[in-house]
Amino acid sequence: PPVPSAHLPSHFMKGAIIQLATGELKRVEDLQTQDFVRSAEVSGGLKIDSSTVVDIQESQWPGFVLLHFVVGEQQSKVSIEVPPEHPFFVYGQGWSSCSPGRTAQLFSLPCHRLQVGDVCISISLQSLN
């Protein structure tokens, strides 16, 4: 498997300005589920999927976690490797990571703890048919 990147971009930093697809600007810590849903609705070609966390494991790469999701209506299995501080947006809950303490330390972004069963927002390409 490819070596995962340890670099997390600054858009997760508290105070980062995020532009929604509607043109509205919001701070990353103020985003709500509806902001993502509405943005996907007005975006051409992108759709929001519900991605349920089914397992959280240690990665073979030190300093990473291996997350397993089932994605969308098809319940497709997708796995990704991320640093434990990587935030995911959980429906109805908000930003969540495997290590809320590290996320707070590195990004000052308040987070819940990401757990098996959490339903995260992800995107994929809209089907053409």
Binding site: P9, S10, H11, F12, A16, I17, I18, Q19, L20, A21, L25, V28, L31, D35, F36, S39, S43, L46, I48, D49, S51, F69, V71, G72, Q74, S76, K77, V78, I80, F88, F89, C120, I121, S122, I123, S124, L125
Partner: peptide, 25 residues
Amino acid sequence: NVEPRSVAVFPWHSLVPFLAPSQPD
């Protein structure tokens, strides 16, 4: 005088993972 500062603006979709299952051929 206040110097103008550029503020980075990030698109919403950069915050959420792109989780697309690999398509079978």
